[in-house]
Design a protein around this nucleic acid. Structure first.
Lengths: 187, 187
DNA sequence: CCACAATGGAACTCTCACGCTCCACAATTG
DNA sequence: CAATTGTGGAGCGTGAGAGTTCCATTGTGG
């Protein structure tokens, strides 16, 4: 009956991604969450969790890789090379906000990002920032790296505020973009 | 010999604050750090650590309270009511950066801030922001709360970058202020 | 429809951080 | 310079979470 023992059945694929999604969500909010907590959130038994990810570390690695991939896909969808630099940056913010839990998980744990091997060497967002600086659209007094980190920081904070109900989810992107583009000064 | 059994001797006070300082520093970088790690960082034996803080939770509470107080003191020194709103805000950024490890510890752990009882109800920075909005100096399209959170996010990120050597410590405040005031757009 | 993949509860061991105690030694303070 | 306070190493019991196995039950999918 087994046609291809290497291929995951649909059931396994569904379970696997349910676990990864819940893991990112739970760990984003409490990085010391226990395995049973994660299993419960995924609607899965602790035994099943162990069957997919033998130990905690492999679950963390898989969750990190999965979140990196989800975030990247979201950025690809944003199509950074389309239209003006400013418009592209706005789409980037929207894309990151859309990545939600994945972003909160990744940037909430300094260790996670530091140890992952799946972080792309080619970063379309970083290139976009450099492009914007070369075009005279973005500030050249600060480094491209800092601009990128400012972007991360504000989007992260926006997502967290939304998560706590301090900011309506549909307004996060607009608010972040406004502050990112022109700061907190009145115009 | 005991003159006042309630008063801490100088030695005890020194040890206590050494522990609290190290705890904030170590826990900011790894919130699951073990007690021996914290004791080592403070140059103190594990036994002594336990003598001052019977269990992990009491150490965490004390460290949180201590960091809140240090940050507050730093803000008091910044003298928010002195001079123009813009200048005051610049001093606030400098004060927060100076708080360094305390800030990284406090804002790095969502749970720490949520459970502390020592967070002041009167927040001079929040009042400064409201004042700035009323004066037409700060953006009124976004909430005062969001401006405050943007401030936190950027200062936090700046401190972290400095900690990782991605940003020179003496440039953190200036960089954060620039981005905070006018965003990432070129002028 | 029915074989087999997939699941999850129960129960076990193992590890490791924690909390605690005791006692010899060092530092302080008057 | 003593009397007392403060320190820290060694070592032990405890408990929570991790990792494992077994087996009865469920439910996918050909």
């Amino acid at each position: 009956m087994v046609i291809n023992p290497l291929a995951e059945t649909r059931a396994r694929a569904r379970t696997r991604s349910a676990i990864l999604r819940s893991a990112a969500s739970v760990l984003a909010r409490n990085r010391t969450a226990t395995l049973p907590e994660i299993a419960d959130a995924a609607g899965v038994g602790r035994t099943t969790l162990h069957r997919y990810f033998p130990d905690r570390e492999s679950l963390l690695r898989a969750t990190t890789d999965n979140s990196v991939q989800a975030l990247q896909q979201s950025l690809v969808d944003a199509d950074v090379h389309q239209g003006s630099t400013a418009d592209a940056m706005r789409r980037v913010v929207g894309a990151m906000v859309a990545a939600g839990d994945h972003l909160l998980f990744l940037f909430g744990d300094p260790a996670a990002l530091a140890t992952t091997t799946s972080w792309p060497t080619e970063d379309p967002v970083y290139e976009l920032i450099e492009r914007g600086q070369a075009e005279g659209v973005f500030d050249t007094e600060v480094s491209a790296r800092w601009i990128q980190h400012s972007l991360w920081a504000l989007v992260y904070r926006g997502c967290e505020d939304a998560d706590r109900g301090e900011l309506p989810l549909h307004g996060v992107a607009a608010t972040v973009i406004r502050t990112l583009e022109t700061g907190i000064r009145a115009r």
